[in-house]
Structures are given as C-alpha cells and as structure tokens.
C-alpha cells in the first residue's frame, strides 16, 4: 500500500501558512450517503462548538479563562462558547472549496460553511482556510469560512437551527446517472423539506450542474415543492453569487475547460402556509 501513507506524509511536511496541495488530498469522488460513516456530529445545534471553526467570531467576554476551567470540570453541562454571528451560508458538497474561497472576501461579515463527506477533501479545505488566514492576517480575510465533514442528507438539523440559513449552494452535485441511484441525489422531495426547515423565508437555494438531466430533475423537484419557487432569470443574472458559482467552483472551471454547458437554477424559500 504505497499510496495513502505517502500522501499523508507529504501533507504533514507542509509548513504552517503554506498552501496545501490538492494532489495529496484527492479522494474518490463518490460516497454512499446511506451508509454509516464514522461521522461526528452534535446531538443538536445548541451544543455545536463553532469556536474552533471561526475563532475571529467568538463573542469576547471578560472572564473567558475562568469559563474554560469550569468547562473542563464538568463537560456535560457546558455550553459551547458564544459566537457573535451565526452561519448563514452553507455550501453542501463543497468539495475543494472553490466557492468558499471566492465568496469569503466578497462577504467578509457573513459566516460561510462548507459541508463535505470526504475526509481528506475536508482536511484540504480546512488547511487552505488556515493558510489563507495567516497570509491575509493584516486584512483579516478568510476568517468567515470553514468546512466540516458531514452527511448533509442525514444531519442538517443537527448543525443548523430552524430558519438559520439565508443561502444554500448545491454546486455540481453527484449526478447519480443510474435510475437505481436517483434516491441518492442531493435534491429530492423529502430532502427539500429539510432544506426548507433550516432556511429563512426569502432565502435562496442555488443549484448548478453540467448534467442537463440532473438540472431538470432539480428544477422539477424544487418547483413541485410547496416551500420553494423558482427565481426568475433577471434576478438570477444580477446575482453576484451566481457569477461566483459559475466561474469559481472547481467543477465550474473543469466544465469550462471541457467546453461543457452549465445549467443554473435558483429557488426562493417561501413562507410556510397558514395552518388549514
């Protein structure tokens, strides 16, 4: 087994502040979302500790050190450090994080989180964020992005509160070409209910793919869902996030190189209907 250990070694040789190299973090592009991965996730969003991910946004209080001492004594009752901001944008299946790194300087006051199911790819994004933070320490950039390893199809409500997010990105998701695998697609009637749950009314879901069939599938399922409406073309054209999504995502660049077509669709989270 010459492969993995060598890669691991190369990763470790990197100096602090250096950019990680993608070739040492490659991982098979598919994961079975139905199997039990050895995932760690909080039992509820209330107990999730975001302070490691966004240290610049931890709420400053006078006696933090005392708080910390107390925490180590009885861990069960301790609530995580308070954050001055909540995550508002989630990039589901962020891959190597192209979108995160492009959006970070454009929305420096908004916390953005990438969710990725592949371990080493998650590590890469975290390392790159760290490196970019230290390189841009003076400007204070890239403090607003981070990445976690998670299965968003199962555990979204473990990370986010009801109506917490204003944007969700689903960029170049696994197309799962075979009909038998369609239930593994990231967009489905039942999953859309979960996206609606964690989103603010008025929030937007951004989708992009180079597979027309998948594009039609996503449009069909979001339009059929009573919690979403499709955003019209004019509004999509004027949206900065759409431009970033088209040009800055890793897959977006790859499609560009291969002369592929990019299909974009954006959907707005509607208010819940009044009870009948």
């Amino acid at each position: 087994m010459p492969g993995p250990p060598k890669k691991r070694q190369k990763r470790d040789e990197k100096q602090d502040g250096d950019m990680p190299q993608k070739k040492y973090y490659r991982q098979r592009a598919h994961a079975n979302p139905f199997s039990d991965h050895d995932l760690t996730y909080p039992e509820s969003p209330d107990v999730m500790d975001w302070s490691q991910h966004y240290p610049a946004f931890v709420e400053q209080s006078g006696n933090t050190s005392i708080d910390k001492d107390r925490k180590s004594e009885d861990q069960n009752d301790a609530s995580p450090p308070k954050m001055s901001k909540q995550i508002e944008i989630a990039d589901i299946g962020c891959g190597f994080g192209g979108l995160l790194f492009a959006l970070a300087p454009k929305l420096p006051d908004t916390l953005i989180l990438g969710l990725e199911i592949r371990t080493s790819v998650t590590e890469f994004v975290q390392e790159k964020a760290k490196a970019l933070r230290s390189q841009n320490a003076a400007a204070g950039l890239y403090n607003n992005i981070s990445c976690i390893r998670a299965n968003a199809m199962k555990f979204l409500p473990n990370f986010f509160h009801k109506a917490q997010l204003s944007k969700i990105f689903l960029c170049f998701p696994d197309p799962h070409f075979k009909a038998r695998k369609h239930k593994q697609r990231i967009v489905s009637t039942s999953l859309n209910s979960e996206y609606a749950f964690v989103m603010k009314p008025g929030g937007k879901v951004y989708t992009i793919t180079d597979v027309e069939d998948l594009h039609l599938w996503m449009v069909e399922h979001f339009e059929a869902h009573s919690s979403f409406e499709r955003v019209n073309d004019d509004e999509v054209e004027g949206d900065v996030c759409v431009e970033v999504m088209k040009t800055e995502t890793e897959e977006g660049k790859k499609v560009e190189r291969n002369d592929g077509t990019k299909y974009v669709a954006v959907f707005r989270r509607l208010k819940d209907p009044p009870w009948p």
Partner: peptide
C-alpha cells in the same frame, strides 16, 4: 435510526417540518 425525532405537519401540509426533538445519542 440517526437519533432524530421529527415533527411535521399532518397532510395536506406534511412538507412543512415544524421541528426536531434532538438529544438522543
């Protein structure tokens, strides 16, 4: 099986998730 208890509206609005009772390990 993944520790969730989900509260949804009954039909005809069963697409609306009202919340989750989270805490099981």
């Amino acid at each position: 099986r993944d520790e969730h208890i989900r509260i949804s509206r009954a039909p005809p609005q069963s697409h609306v998730i009202e919340g989750y009772c989270l805490g099981h390990r």
